[in-house]
Design a protein around this nucleic acid. Structure first.
Lengths: 216, 216, 216, 216
DNA sequence: CATGAATGAGGTTTCATTCAT
DNA sequence: TATGAATGAAACCTCATTCAT
């Protein structure tokens, strides 16, 4: 029930889950399959009512087979979160690069767009993170908190960049950064409500506008 | 605009839970006791890992007694949510009164203050709502969605008031209103993070300031 | 959980059931009330699904009150059976008297009529006996078997009387007697079927006719 | 006359009991095993005091395994009755064949012999039917009543055959038929009493003789 | 490597019985 | 004497996990 440190590795294969399998390719495939199927189920019905039989069925594999790729039910959640986190790989590198090459306002727009679209294309995982964090292992919980903090810090840095060069005027960059990240997560968490009124494009545009009004 | 369906039910006694007991006062007391104890447990460990024995113990009552006031484990969640929702009673009446007697900017400040402090003093319930909505009964789920919509609508109305008399300039009142409510809920949901940096007072002040910058 | 020997006593009061009550009249009244109400419930839904709350409710008394008149749930069954058995009081005396004063054929008709009408007016109890004998206490079970044997013996004696004086010709009096008693019990047990085709009067007449054809 | 609805269902597999298992052969085997073991327990101690652990133990399977083949405790009773009813398959076909090829008196003797021996070799099930019918599902209850009616009808038809060709003289064929069937059931229900005095052979012979005296 | 039947620990639920009022 | 809320033992039932095939 050990999880990969962030950025340290790319694969589910390396997750230290007890398994009998020796074929890394197969492990990778199966675990991704499990993560995706289970994430959809968890997003729909919650972790509490997920049972392993359901997962096996959703994966079109037998119970025994499922247990070749996980060590326990809890590992399913870890797999979901591990797989989900891997989707956010590269965010920080891209932000760092953006800060070097763009003006703060453009960096900010770019970062919001990048984050919100990631949330959009990984809704099930984002929702799972948000709702089921209490049920995740301590290690994963810590990693999730850390990653979220990193997101916020990234935006904080961009905002500070803008303040330094006079483009932005922000009293409380930390809170603005927090709100940006939260509103991104909400696109996944409150999708039932928000999708009645917005598309991902209009949501990004309007939230970006509101943010910009806040800081200029 | 109309806020349908709110305030129809004040008491836990009237919840349609099978019980043998006939003493309404006692039912009310016990159910509140159960809701409060269980909400704390759920906020701490999540619904998935709550078991009824824990709840009985936390209430200092026997298993059998517990089952005189609930029909099944699931009813515990319904009780939490039902009790939690009852805490928000009166919000709308107060907002309506405020809109009549105050200027839009003051109404807005007042409403934010009222909502955020309600979230603060009902953190366990707010957290429960947010996280465990998937596990609640359809009936309660609908009521929760409705109430949240009503909150958003309340803020939307205040914002529109301000636009009409020229105090505010908002392009997308609905989204601003949504963000206000979400940020209130976040005080309960993300308390682990936010309380490191803010008190409820400073959080209210700073979020209010940011909102005002957005709309003026 | 001791039951009265047959004929030895008339009252439910004397049943050795632990109780706090000292008022014999009340005890008698309450126990009869319990026996009758419970017998109806048992006849309708079976002993397995009878619960003491139901009985208390059917008697219009509280749970605690019920337990002043019984020592345990099992005593309810004993009360039913004890009360039911008391209804058959006097059968044997009447049969003995009949044998002295009537011719065998008339004794037989009389005895069948008496038994079957007793079954008819005590259907709930007869049905309870039949169905729930397995759940009764060993003592009651023995007493029920004994009483049934006595019924059969009574008919056997009448049949033997008739053989001796040449009125009847029966090879197997015991089996004929057995069948007579069984058919009486069936009026209560199979009432759903039999009442579609017979009244108690026609049932007695036709069964008596068939029996007479068998033995003459 | 027609015997509707019989023979429609041969297998326990087809019984509408929720189960996870997909191997019909195994289901059939296990359910038969459960039905037989449980029937013996019910015959001995009654349905009221049967608990599922006992059944699992009697079947030499674990609790969980038991619940793969039943959905609830009540299904055990349904299984017993369903299995029991399946034992009476073929009775009607044989009777129809007998009526074509034998004289009424021989048909009657044959049918009694067949029915009573079936009761003898399925005592536990017959007893269960009789005593626990109140606890069975409505569906099964209806089927039991129907089958019993069909038995009675079969005998009624044979008796009518005999009346038509002058071999029998019966005023009330329905009641005679009813008594024949009841006396067969009694061999299972009252075995404690009857086996003291009769073997199955002598019981069949003597009851047949009594019946023949009734109708000639 | 794949399977799904078997398992039993641990959860949920019931209900006979008690006892303070 | 009457009550019914409180109790917990014992029942029912589920489901993560194992293992023989």
């Amino acid at each position: 029930m050990d999880l990969p440190g962030f950025g340290e590795q790319d694969t589910l294969t390396q997750m230290t889950i007890r398994t009998f399998s020796r074929n890394d390719n197969l492990i990778e495939t199966r675990r991704a399959q499990i993560a995706i199927s289970a994430a959809a189920l968890v997003a729909k019905h919650g972790w509490a009512s997920l049972n392993v039989r359901q997962v096996a069925k959703a994966c079109n594999i037998g119970m025994g087979t499922l247990y070749h790729y996980i060590g326990s039910r809890e590992d399913i959640l870890n797999l979901i979160i591990g797989y989900g986190l891997s989707r956010y790989q590269g965010f920080f590198e891209k932000i760092i690069a953006a800060r070097r090459t763009m003006k703060p306002a453009d960096s900010l727009k770019y970062a919001i767009d990048l984050l919100y679209r990631t949330m959009d294309s990984n809704q099930d995982f984002a929702l799972g993170f948000y709702r089921e964090i209490k049920n995740a292992s301590v290690e994963l919980r810590d990693r999730m908190v850390e990653i979220e903090n990193n997101y916020i810090s990234s935006f904080e840095l961009i905002l500070k960049d803008g303040c330094e060069n006079g483009d932005f005027h922000v009293k409380n960059a930390k809170l603005v950064a927090n709100n940006i990240v939260v509103n991104g997560e909400m696109w996944a968490v409150r999708r039932g409500y928000l999708k009645k009124h917005y598309t991902i494009d209009s949501y990004i545009k309007e939230q970006t506008d509101l943010t910009l009004k806040t800081i200029t």
